[in-house]
Design a protein around this nucleic acid. Structure first.
Lengths: 332, 332
DNA sequence: TTCCACAGCGACATAATCTGTCGCTTCTTG
DNA sequence: CAAGAAGCGACAGATTATGTCGCTGTGGAA
């Protein structure tokens, strides 16, 4: 089909958003790859005519002119979002906002803007109601995010993605000054308010380390591929270094008596599929489940204070026994 | 400008995704609103010619034919995502997946699909590396999500959005059978694995209630606007009903001694802007901050076990004193 | 400087297309 | 069965799209 419409749509999809640009030559090639064999002159004409009606800009300071979509221009999206979809996205926005790195969140902001535009168009009164009537609440205490250097962060992402070595100014915990290091990035781990770079450093050529992103002061991407330990497995690494706790392999049978009101929610949101629950005569709930042995689970139990009595495993019960005496010692 | 390209792009934006459809008549009007005054015949021709090259479908079982984009078709997006943007979105996907209602997450899945497509095109090797090298780890214990009825959930969303009354089969906590209720939805609150409908019920015409979505068995949207209490404020409601804890207004000055290793992270991710931290001679950290009086904060403190000693406020210290004796009583 | 390559642009002629109109057909509905 | 609605084929004239060519200005190399 030699329909100009399709060719022009393809072309519009090939034009990047400012500040990146593309050029007629490049467009000609890319369009040719997609089966549109046209003269460069035609592309020029198309660009000029589309520029008049769409938020395109042409950088004519240098001579192959550089074409891009304007930074904030709305572009084209078909099919348009329907209202329910837009609502869902605006909900996703509420979920993401507090937990995602600020810079990343901003980068996809135009997308949320588009969703909100759709909602505005359909019915400003309804969208307002939605705004006022839906909340995503934090499940737990949120800490302040560490301050981090945006350009360093971006560079770390890029280097990890492309597998390039870096040279970076990194400040060790406790140190006030940062020092220059040569690093092979292996991966990224986001956990709560802290994100970590998993990497090899010159000090230890065997074992990867994890470094919080906010301790990087500046990052320079080197023109050299990373050297990685063979069979490196990020999940295994996070597990053995206590970053993750989902994949722990040690299992035990857990049994405890919970105060009814404090643990009633376990009836509807069980710990996992193995959980069993039984109401005792004194009103307490006997909960049992196969659990992995993790720090987080212990912390969760401790947060119940005196509303839980651990029965099994004995080791865990002993820990709580010790906790009781430790606390007594502290406060009496 | 009588350029067919632009008109056709506009038209593509006006065609909804299946199962919704649109019709030539309707398109003619909408295009006319946008300044494209063309014959219906032209629109028909455009549709047929675009159908051949784009994932459009025409439902010709009935006679104004219904046009839509196919359910999974990729549509048009310009400007295209650049790779970094696509990475960011694929990261957002990792953040959202565990915490967002499954149905909602699926609804915007096409968007993540698009991002992943961009990445695949740029470099399949790199995207694979990214997949293997980036993890979003849960910060805390995740419970199993309650099972919920998808159509009921969708209806609750819709009714809340549109402000319509509903008639629903709702199962009270503890009950095995559900009963029919007449409800005025006021809002939605998502908190961890449980989502709540805030609403007025016939039993109590004064005070809103909150009902977990997973206890709804079926929902029928009525053709009647909700009656809402005047000056209803969702934030105030969540606050007074202990759903949220961020906006509590009671403030106190908190002081405690933390074990160094257990609380070192507070130096980088402070509780809030008012936090002060001081290293004592015995190695412990004296942390002080203005805090709101919330259950969650107390739970967080309890999760430290014997690694924290509360100094102020006295009330809180007393609670921990009582905790110590309660635990001793339980375990000795 | 001069020369050359490159990119953009205007002009032009022709082929290709786009589009409104009309009339026929098919289907539904009362 | 009549009327109306929607789709579709055909047609013709107007419009547009496109390749080609040659001119111009710019910038770098000789």
């Amino acid at each position: 089909m030699s329909n100009p419409t399709l060719r022009q749509i393809s072309m519009l999809e090939l034009i990047p958003r400012a500040p990146r640009k593309t050029y007629t030559k490049k467009l000609k090639e890319q369009l040719s790859d997609r089966g549109y064999d046209v003269d460069e002159r035609t592309i020029q004409r198309d660009l000029v005519s589309l520029e008049r009606v769409l938020p395109l800009i042409c950088d004519d300071r240098d001579k192959p002119y550089g074409w891009s979509w304007t930074e904030e221009g709305l572009g084209i999206q078909a099919p348009a979002m329907d209202p329910i979809e837009a609502l869902t996205i605006s909900l996703a926005e509420q979920y993401l906002e507090p937990i995602m790195p600020k810079a990343s969140f901003k980068r996809i902001g135009y997308f949320f803007k588009r969703a909100n535009n759709v909602l505005k168009d359909t019915s400003p009164r309804l969208i307002n109601r939605w705004r006022n009537r839906v909340r995503v609440l934090p499940e737990m205490l949120r800490f302040k995010n560490p301050i981090l250097n945006k350009s360093a962060e971006q560079a770390l992402y890029k280097a990890t993605f492309e597998g390039q070595q870096i040279r970076a100014l990194y400040r060790k915990r406790g140190d006030t000054k940062s020092s220059l290091r040569h690093i092979h990035p292996l991966g990224l781990v986001m956990k709560g308010s802290i994100n970590y770079l998993i990497c090899m450093m010159d000090e230890d050529k065997e074992n990867p380390r994890y470094l919080p992103l906010h301790r990087f002061e500046s990052v320079e991407i080197l023109d050299e591929k990373i050297r990685e330990p063979k069979d490196f497995d990020l999940d295994e690494f996070t597990h053995t270094n206590n970053l993750s706790f989902e994949y722990s392999k040690k299992l035990y049978t857990f049994k405890a008596l919970f105060d009814f009101t404090a643990a009633a929610h376990l009836m509807e949101t069980p710990l996992n599929g193995t959980q069993k629950i039984e109401k005792k005569i004194d009103g307490r709930l006997l909960v049992s489940a196969r659990m992995t042995d993790t720090l987080q689970f212990e912390q969760w139990l401790k947060s119940f204070g005196a509303d839980v009595e651990i029965l099994e495993p004995k080791k865990l019960r002993d820990k709580f026994k010790k906790l009781a005496s430790d606390l007594t010692e502290k406060y009496f």
